[in-house]
């Protein structure tokens, strides 16, 4: 803890280092926050899809296609978060 505090103090003194530290921290937050919503969304979506497949097995093919489409749209949000992570961390 002492070491981290010292690094932080030293880093805060240097504007470039301060930017890097802030970027790394906010990159982590960006990805973590971006993963919450889509995580809930995909869970809900797949759960409902499984439910409807169990209820109507003859419609399983159609449900599966639509489920993948929904997952693709939902997942895009998390992936944009991931790209923002890369941008913040490395750009």
């Amino acid at each position: 803890m002492e070491a981290i505090a010292r690094i932080a103090a030293a880093a805060a003194a240097d504007p470039a280092e301060a930017k890097n530290t802030a970027a790394a921290a906010s990159a982590g937050y960006a990805y973590g926050l971006a993963a919450i919503g889509p995580g809930i969304g995909i869970g809900y979506l797949v759960g409902k899809a499984v439910e409807s497949m169990a209820r109507q097995p003859e419609a399983a093919g159609m449900v599966r296609t639509t489920m993948f489409l929904g997952i693709a749209f939902t997942e895009a949000l998390a992936l944009i978060g991931f790209v923002v992570f890369i941008l913040l961390k490395f750009a």
């Binding site: 895009a76 992936l79 944009i80 790209v83």
Partner: peptide
Amino acid sequence: SLAVRLFANMLA
């Protein structure tokens, strides 16, 4: 989203 979805999935 089409490009980013494919790219980000494979990159991740």
